[in-house]
């Protein structure tokens, strides 16, 4: 599905992720964990193509960038923009409907189903500005549902979300997994990871461990990850970039 080869990512010559090599299997449900500043969000951005690698590459197998859906950590959505829940969710059909196409009856039914799946039925015509944080996240998940992507990337989808919403949205993630979609989610809550994600990719500016969650989420690995992200433990060293 997804290969990282010697992947080095960063901003302005400061690498956030160093020489990462890993492989995400088809249909896997992977948690991406690591301390703050470990490069988790950066990695997702590189997969979506928003960020070009400094070195190495991300390669897709059997899918293209068009099959990727991405939920950023802080979406740039203007919450004061006068648009309703149903309009926001329907944006998920963009790839099918495009800039000019009409929403036919089937599309409308799918929008309705997606809204129902995330438990927002009844709020379809509310302006997005009047939703709570949790309701808004549910709406974004409904939009992801409609994107019908083979690879779903979620960047801290449950930060600042209550436990009931988290449980509902986890159910959506499990459904994706059941449908054979590949899901990668950046998460901080270790219990959520252990209980819901079979695979874990632990990074701390470089790969710490990757594999079955219980083997990755060990005390030793966490300590190693923390040590790698300590600031100022070593002077910055020049790392030669070979042009890819």
């Amino acid at each position: 599905m997804l290969h990282f080869e010697n992947l080095t990512l960063g901003y302005d010559r400061h690498p956030a992720v160093h020489h990462l090599g890993a492989q995400i299997k088809d249909g896997s449900l992977t948690a991406v964990v690591g301390p703050n500043g470990a490069g988790k969000s950066t990695l997702l951005k590189a997969i979506t193509g928003v960020l070009s690698p400094m070195e190495g590459r991300v390669t897709f197998e059997k899918i293209s960038r068009n099959d990727v859906a991405y939920l950023p950590q802080q979406s740039e959505i203007d919450r004061t923009f006068p648009i309703s829940v149903v309009d926001l969710v329907a944006m998920g059909l963009w790839r099918e409907v495009g800039a000019f196409g009409r929403l036919n009856r089937k599309h409308k039914a799918r929008v309705k189903d997606a809204i129902e799946a995330v438990g927002l039925t009844g709020l379809e015509n509310r302006a997005i500005g009047s939703l709570s944080g949790g309701q808004f996240q549910r709406a974004l998940f409904a939009r992801l549902l409609l994107q019908d992507a083979k690879l779903v990337l979620l960047d801290e989808p449950f930060s600042a979300i209550d436990s009931r919403t988290t449980a509902d949205l986890l159910r959506v993630i499990h459904d994706w997994h059941g449908e054979g979609r590949t899901v990668m989610a950046v998460l901080h809550d270790h219990d959520t990871v252990r209980e819901n994600f079979p695979e874990t990719l632990m990074i701390a500016r470089e790969l710490v461990a990757h594999g079955p969650t219980l083997q990755v989420m060990t005390r030793a690995n966490h300590a190693a990850a923390r040590a790698l992200c300590e600031i100022g433990t070593e002077p910055p060293q020049i790392c030669e970039v070979r042009s890819a």
């Binding site: 990727v68 991405y70 979406s75 740039e76 959505i77 944006m91 963009w94 800039a99 994107q147």
Partner: peptide, 15 residues
């Protein structure tokens, strides 16, 4: 245009 105003990041990701 509506999408570019409401959620430019999303528009860039799908189009």
């Amino acid at each position: 245009l509506v999408l570019e105003c409401a959620d430019p990041q999303f528009l860039r990701s799908v189009s």
